[in-house]
């Protein structure tokens, strides 16, 4: 299917580029609907790849690219499910997210995440699966998982290790602080920082440039320079699921869901 309009995301091929838009209010929290639709998207990738040379992932919401996994949905499931069934469900959800992001990471298309505003947790991990990240000046990147007694579970650590030096990864993970686009570009993760509201336009301009090159050569170059760390990704799933079985996670999720003040990300 080369066009799809879903509840959480939509895609269409425009001028030889697949554009995947995230549009679930309030800030593209990635829950079961988003993952199911993303699964449909990656199932369509092979067909889309025959009509396009590039993929742009962006958010059409003002608040940002994505606030990450839908913690409220997870907490609701935790409260309403039998414990073993819940933990199995968590593993299935994480494996599904990995399948989606691995497929995007390995896509024969050149992939661009055009991001702005909040790029947190699973949203950050989705962007890390792309070949290029183009950010506007409002973008903030964060792995808040330690606040919940977790590590990032959708491939964040192995992909950061692939792309960056260890010191900045420790800073991101262990402090849980958010970093602005300028800092993240300085670290080497972002290819372009553009003015507010210009990320999608810049990504489209980049996609036009990519069209000049032979797609097979581009795909070979990508496979050579961007190996997918499957072994570490699997270890991450196991560690994440082990941590999820601890009571600290339930407490962390409850605290997040119950908070009504304006500062859940500043603590």
């Amino acid at each position: 299917m080369n066009e799809f309009q879903g509840q959480a995301l939509s895609w269409a091929v425009k001028d030889g580029t697949v554009e995947l838009a995230l549009h679930r209010e309030p800030c593209n929290e990635l829950g079961s609907i988003a993952l199911e639709e993303a699964d449909r998207f990656v199932d369509s990738l092979a067909k889309l790849g025959r009509e396009a040379h590039a993929l742009i992932i962006f958010s059409s919401l003002r608040a940002g690219f994505s606030a990450g996994a839908d913690l409220r949905e997870l907490y609701h499931l935790l409260q309403t499910s039998e414990r073993d069934a819940f933990l199995k469900g968590v593993r299935a959800r994480v494996e599904r997210a990995h399948r989606v992001i691995n497929a995007i990471d390995a896509a024969p298309l050149t992939t661009i995440a055009a991001v702005h505003g909040v790029v947190f947790g699973g949203g950050f991990e989705l962007a890390l699966g792309c070949d290029l990240i183009i950010a506007d000046k409002t973008a903030r990147f964060c792995f808040p998982e330690l606040r919940l007694g977790l590590i990032p579970g959708w491939g964040g650590i192995p992909r950061l290790k692939r792309d960056l030096g260890n010191a900045i990864i420790r800073d991101l993970l262990l402090t849980g602080r958010s970093l602005g686009a300028a800092k993240v570009q300085q670290a080497g993760l972002i290819s372009q920082v553009v003015a507010e509201g210009e990320a999608l336009r810049a990504a489209r301009a980049t996609a036009v440039q990519l069209r000049k090159f032979d797609p097979y050569t581009a795909a070979m170059a990508k496979r050579f320079i961007k190996p997918i760390p499957y072994e570490e990704l699997q270890r991450e799933i196991d560690i994440f699921c082990e941590l999820f079985s601890r009571p600290a996670v339930e407490a962390g999720l409850r605290q997040f869901v119950d908070r009504v003040d304006a500062q859940p990300y500043l603590s």
Partner: peptide, 11 residues
Amino acid sequence: IDSLQTLDLLT
């Protein structure tokens, strides 16, 4: 402002 707008202010 809410939490996301606070991050916007920080940026």
